[in-house]
Write a protein that binds this DNA or RNA. Structure first.
Lengths: 115, 115
DNA sequence: TTGACGCGTAGGGGATCGCCTACCTATTCT
DNA sequence: AGAATAGGTAGGCGATCCCCTACGCGTCAA
């Protein structure tokens, strides 16, 4: 593990920490590549602010831009999310154990006592 | 979707945005439940600062504390990470397509031209 | 060529983050 | 009881976040 990889991980998690940016990713996923203004229409926010969010997403590698005339088409780049999934993987057995523990508990409870 | 769920999602992503907090989760995962001082020993940081990180993790539901004498034993609570995985799921086909695209490209390239 | 359009950047301001040093409470040891 | 230990909270302070308005640059239209 080299410092560069750690910095990239940091940029991805930091990019995902903002609800507006997560919503941008969702829009690009559901509606495909779009220019900035089409994205901006979905938010109660001035366009330059959205541009800054797009910059954060770009620097995290989560979107790419492609110029087309005076527009810039933004496109989802999901590869860094695969690394987030890799990061999650070692935790999976923990949440499965805990959910299973809850299931076992419910199995041993009379129905009347269930929450 | 009831506002509360969105706020919970926000707290989880925000909690994961900090490298120290991700490292705390890793320590709890690899070494099991621990008191605060044992965790603090791994960081170049005063103990009260780590206490604040633990508070953020607690409010995101990612750790729980259990008092034992004058110690407080922190334990990993991975359930919110399952929700992160759920959030990732609709993106999975995108990164698979993109990785597959790279694979196809390599398949069509003579070995000498590969990066 | 002049103006309108699409979008990024500069710079400012308030809110929040992340660290610190003090300090407080609760528990345990002598 | 008094001292030591474990850990949370208060408050301060610089850095960063996230929004804004103003402006600059490139492209398309009249």
């Amino acid at each position: 593990m080299n410092g560069t990889a750690a910095a990239a991980e940091d940029r991805v998690f930091a990019a995902l920490a903002n609800a507006t940016r997560r919503e941008v990713l969702r829009l690009l996923r559901e509606r495909g590549p779009q220019p900035v203004q089409a994205l901006a229409d979905h938010f109660d926010m001035r366009r330059p602010s959205l541009s800054e969010h797009l910059k954060v997403l770009r620097e995290a590698g989560l979107v790419s831009e492609q110029r087309s005339g005076r527009q810039r088409i933004y496109r989802l780049r999901a590869a860094p999310l695969a690394e987030v999934q890799d990061w999650l993987h070692p935790y999976e057995r923990f949440w499965r154990e805990q959910l299973k523990g809850l299931g076992d508990l419910l199995d041993r409870m009379p129905d009347d006592d269930r929450p």
